[in-house]
Structure formats: structure tokens, C-alpha cells
Design a protein around this nucleic acid. Structure first.
Lengths: 233, 233
DNA sequence: ACAAAAGTGTTAAAGCTACACCCATGA
DNA sequence: TCATGGGTGTAGCTTTAACACTTTTGT
């Protein structure tokens, strides 16, 4: 373009609702803030977007800094821009959710603003800093809706999982009981679950068959359904 | 809070995809830019968010300045924040769509950046300024999805409408033909369409019955379905 | 042997799809 | 009287919902 560039100072941030599934419960990752404002409160992980950083890029950076994980499914779900949402000035925030496999071994690195990062059950959250409670609720609603038309559950489960685990996850997200037989029938009918020659180990009862999600088959089955790009609908 | 406020300069804007339905076609409102960058290009109506203006408020202001309409259904659908999306600097934009009843009489006031505002069929759009083509496409996809679980069609039709008009609108949004009998059966089965004692006028064929959308009945029927707030799902 | 979860079918109801003709009206 | 869209029913198929017992395994 022929005109000079105008330089603005960034005034936007990213906040992330990071979902995980553990012990039959849906959880999110929260940090405990070490500085004001909201010192000692729990908050969603987030940061200002840097000047030469796209917002997707920024969301991925924040997640990486906290969890050491890259290339996860992140999805922007809403932008919050009330004038007074941030006590330090006019900062609007773009909210993303991420789905990750909780791995007890992985060490979480809380980063600059946080004392520690911990998993909290979505059913038992305290009041969060800023407008983060509202952000969480909006994100959870979007996740729930998305579950009905996208195979996102598999991002939260280990690579190999049992049908009961899958069902528990659906129940945790949808917050209702499902019928075991109907659930299995339906999931298997889609044809994108691959039954493995393996079973659960170290359980004190009959071991269940393990399955994995076959992304190839999924894409083949649902490609161009309504002309919608499956990875960006 | 005890600390001093930090003042940022705003660097975000709103862009609006304004849908209307006319002559059996789904249309959007575009402005022709009168200044650089993108002088003479078509663009979505948009503006910078003012310093003391919430983003919803800003979206409503922009729509009002352009159309003279207030209190319309506006829905935020995505935020676009590529580093280079705007030639003048780092400006991220929050995109909204609005649904309006096209009224041939209403005068559109294009505002500061625009020479004129005109309706364009969604099936025949030229390349738009900035990343507005992408913004439009994303918005259209979200609109289409939303149609399947929210009664948004009624925002686009006149208060009194025929079932054929309703069907044409669905066909325009979903971009496919629907079966007349099945469509009517289904719409009427919901129970929130009120049949009026009135018929179409000034048509050169058998006049069709007029219906209107009964928002009260709708709310009663669908309240708390899955615990989701119907106006903010 | 018992506790715990795995695994498995059938039936009825509801919803969806496909399909074609007569009717009312104004020109 | 003709052209135009308005208005209507049925049958087959698919999908969903409700429902309970036997099997396997480890302790």
C-alpha cells in the first residue's frame, strides 16, 4: 500500500479454557495468580498478544508455555470486550479452548503470572479472576454443542480407550447419563472407531477391549458433508 | 483496585455481515469505500471501536449509523487477528452478523468511509477489501449452522409471511431445495407458527395464508432445553 | 464365590424421505 | 381458460429410546 503504516499499541489478550478428562471428570486448567490485580485468585491462563504475533499463534504460544504441548486442537470461541472487564485499562480478550490428554507425568510450567497451574473439575469451580467465570461458561457451552457434530472427544482421551471411557466423557460433557447399549451401537455404527487386538490392563475386573479413533476413516466418511470443511466448520 | 490504570490505545475494529432476504435471495449489505486503502472496493461495514465503547455497543452503533435500525439480533461469530490483515497497522477485528428485514423504503446512510451502501446477493459477490471475503464466508457458515437450532429465519422475513417465503429463505441459506410438503409439516409441527386470518394481497394467483412467528410460544416450548439459554446459546 | 464392570438384541415409537395431484385466483 | 403458485397424505425406511441379563476377570 502506498500510505505509511500506523503503529498501534496492542490492547488485546488471549485467554484459554484448557479442557482435560481425568478420573471420569471433565477438568480445566487454572493458574493461581501471583500478582495484582486478583493476586491469589484462580484464573484462566492467558497473556497479551505480542505485536508481531497472530492471535492463533499467540494462543498456541500460551498453551505451550504452560503445558509444553504444541499442535493441539485449539478453537476460538468468543471475544469479550466490555469496557470495564479489565481493571488496568481497555483490554479485550479473545478466548480459545483447547482439548488435551491429561498426563499425570507432565510437568506444568505456570509462567510469569502464575504461582502454579492445577486441574479443577468443571463441576466445582470457585469464582475466577476478571470475567473468567463467564468466559469459562461460554466456552463450555460451545464445547458441548460442538461435541454433537465433531469428533472432539478423541482429543481428550488417551490414544487407546475403552467404550466405557468414551461414554463417561460424553456424559461428563453433556452432563447426563446415556444408555450403554444405545451409546455403543451408535458410536460403532459411525464406522470410524477401530477395534484393537488389545485389552485394558491392570484392572481388577473383566478387561475391556481397546479402540482407537481412525481419523482417516472419519475424514473419508464425512468429507464434504454439506460442503463444510471438517477442520474448520 | 489499588494500582494505577494503564491506558492503551484501541487497536480493534468491528466488521458486520448484515444479512437480508429479498426477492427470494439472501443478500448482504456492502459499502463502496471512498478512501484508501482499498478505495472503490466493496467492503463489509465496519469501524474502529471507540475507547469507551463495549464491543456489542460498537457493533450496534455501526449498524445504526448505516441502516438507522436499532435493537436487532446481532451475533458475534469470530475474531480475525492475522498480523498483516490490515495495511495500516495491527488491527484485529471482531466480526458480527446481523439479520434485518429489507425494506425498500428505508434509506441507507453509508457514513464516513463509504460512498454508498448496497445489497448484494451472497451468490454473486466480488472480491472484497481486506480479509472481508473470508469474514463473510465464516459468517455465512455460522449462520447456516445456527439456522438448524435457532429460529433466526423470522428475523429476516416480514412480520407476516407465507410458508413458501419461509421455505425459500431456508433454501437460500442452506443452498438446497427442500420438499414442500415435508417442510410445511415440520415447521407447523413445532407449534410456534401462528396462522393468521389474513392472506397475501396483490398476487396474480391464489393468495397464500399468512403466518407469524410466535416468540412467546417458542420460548415456552424450548425453554431450558438442555439448560441452554435460548437467547445466548 | 463374589464383586465389578463388560458385553450384548429386541421392540415400539417417532421422525424422515420420497412422491403427484387438485384447488383457487387473477389476468 | 389458462398460468401460477397454494395446499394436501401416505407408505417405507431410518433412527431413537427403553429396557435386563449373562459373561469375564481378579481378589
Amino acid at each position: 500500500m502506498e500510505e505509511k503504516l500506523v503503529k498501534f499499541e496492542s490492547a488485546f489478550s488471549i485467554d484459554c479454557v484448557i479442557f482435560g478428562f481425568e478420573a471420569g471428570e471433565l477438568k480445566i486448567l487454572l493458574i493461581e495468580r501471583k500478582d495484582n490485580p486478583f493476586k491469589d485468585w484462580l484464573a484462566l491462563p492467558g497473556d497479551l498478544v505480542k505485536n508481531h504475533e497472530g492471535i492463533e499463534e499467540s494462543a498456541e504460544r500460551i498453551l505451550y508455555e504452560l503445558t509444553g504441548l504444541r499442535d493441539l486442537h485449539m478453537e476460538q470461541f468468543h471475544t469479550f470486550g466490555d469496557v470495564n472487564r479489565h481493571p488496568r485499562g481497555r483490554i479485550i480478550t479473545v478466548a480459545y479452548y483447547a482439548l488435551i490428554r491429561i498426563d499425570g507425568q507432565r510437568e506444568l510450567k505456570p509462567g510469569n503470572f502464575a504461582k502454579k497451574a492445577l486441574w479443577h473439575s468443571v463441576n466445582d469451580l470457585p469464582k475466577l479472576a476478571y470475567d473468567h467465570t463467564e468466559i469459562f461458561k461460554t466456552g463450555f457451552t460451545k464445547l458441548r454443542r460442538r461435541l454433537s457434530y465433531q469428533p472432539i472427544a478423541y482429543e481428550l482421551l488417551p490414544e487407546k480407550f475403552t467404550l466405557t471411557q468414551l461414554q463417561q466423557l460424553y456424559e461428563a460433557i453433556l452432563n447426563k447419563k446415556l444408555d450403554k447399549r444405545n451409546f455403543r451401537k451408535k458410536m460403532l455404527s459411525y464406522g470410524f472407531l477401530k477395534e484393537l487386538d488389545e485389552k485394558q490392563k491392570n484392572v481388577s475386573f473383566r478387561a475391556a477391549k481397546l479402540y482407537k479413533f481412525d481419523r482417516r476413516k472419519y475424514s473419508k466418511i464425512f468429507q464434504n458433508e454439506l460442503g463444510v470443511d471438517i477442520d474448520n466448520p
